[in-house]
């Protein structure tokens, strides 16, 4: 691989085959993890929310769509098992990575661990919102991305535990008193609303679609890589750190711009448009039921 300085300019160099040097933000593991979260979360929301808002008309539409409340329950449980699978895999992966680095990974500026800089960044962002300062520069993950990840990982434990309590009440009440089943329903139902709000509106979808830097679609979680210039502007600290540490080569990939890339682009757009549609639909339905 070329050295750092050459790589950056390689993008504009004349090529026989049309290729582009891109910055690989997510590897295949990350992308598959996201795909599993994406599919299972959507199924869980659409089969679960009609129960929470059972008095609404749309609750019945969805139950009809899934073939009844019993069938919806089966899909909900299958998606729950997918959730257990991805969570366990992701958690194991994280633990192994942290252990392998002897804890260094947790202290790295590119880590998902929240730190003092995140608080400073958040204050800095509010200052920027009001035109009182420059936009803070980010490393690999912004504070809202860390919140997104942490809340999903922690929320999954809470919603998963309460979900399994309701799935296997006989087993859990061998030890726990019955009121835990009442509490489980309250937690499961409200944690679901919280998670949906975070994912579908305020944090995840906003950061992927509506943020000025990513509007109208940030498809990096699907494609894995982005043009180097863009990434450099988005996450200047990580870029500078890699240049300084000499590890930039590890994340640069040569993307061959064949028809497959464009076909894949169409696919990501379709999937994301569908997901966006689902999110807007469910959000609208819930707002409707709250004000109905």
């Amino acid at each position: 691989m070329a050295s750092t300085g050459e790589t950056v300019t390689a993008e504009s160099a004349p090529q026989t085959v049309r290729t582009r040097i891109e910055y690989r933000r997510f590897n295949v593991f990350h992308r598959w993890m996201h795909f599993l979260v994406f599919v299972s979360f959507t199924v869980l929301v659409f089969t679960g929310m009609p129960l929470k808002y059972k008095d609404t008309e749309w609750a019945r539409w969805f139950m009809d769509l899934f073939g009844g409340v019993t069938a919806a329950g089966v899909y909900h449980r299958i998606a729950a098992l997918v959730t257990v699978f991805y969570w366990t895999l992701e958690f194991t992966f994280m633990v192994v990575m942290v252990l392998r680095s002897r804890g260094k990974l947790l202290r790295s500026p590119g880590s998902l661990m929240p730190g003092k800089k995140d608080l400073e960044d958040m204050i800095g962002m509010f200052a920027w919102f009001f035109g009182k300062g420059p936009k803070p520069q980010f490393d690999r993950y912004t504070y809202w991305e860390k919140f997104d990840y942490m809340s999903l990982m922690a929320g999954t434990v809470i919603i998963g535990m309460t979900g399994f309590m309701m799935w296997f009440p006989l087993w859990f009440t061998k030890v726990l008193p019955g009121i835990f089943l009442n509490i489980a329903l309250v937690i499961h139902s409200n944690e679901a609303l919280l998670a949906m709000g975070v994912i579908f509106i305020f944090v995840h979808f906003f950061s992927a679609h509506a943020r000025p830097e990513s509007f109208p679609l940030d498809k990096v979680i699907f494609t894995g890589s982005v043009p180097v210039d863009h990434y450099k502007a988005e996450r200047p600290l990580e870029f500078a750190r890699r240049v300084r540490e000499g590890t930039l080569d590890e994340v640069l990939v040569e993307k061959r711009l064949t028809w497959r890339i464009y076909a894949a682009d169409v696919l990501w757009w379709t999937i994301t448009a569908f997901a966006g549609f689902c999110a807007i639909l469910m959000t609208a339905f819930i707002i409707w039921s709250v004000f109905d």
């Binding site: 962002m125 509010f126 920027w128 919102f129 009001f130 035109g131 809202w144 009121i179 009442n182 509490i183 309250v186 937690i187 409200n190 944690e191 609303l193 919280l194 709000g197 975070v198 509106i201 305020f202 944090v203 906003f206 509506a210 943020r211 000025p212």
Partner: peptide, 30 residues
């Protein structure tokens, strides 16, 4: 006991959604 968990979650949802809404709206505005 059940009400306590309900109340805690309503507060948590209110705080997170309010903060999320303000942060999102300001970001778009800027």
């Amino acid at each position: 006991a059940v009400w306590t968990f309900y109340a805690l979650y309503i507060m948590l949802i209110a705080v997170v959604f309010t903060f999320g809404f303000v942060h999102t709206a300001l970001y778009i505005y800027r």
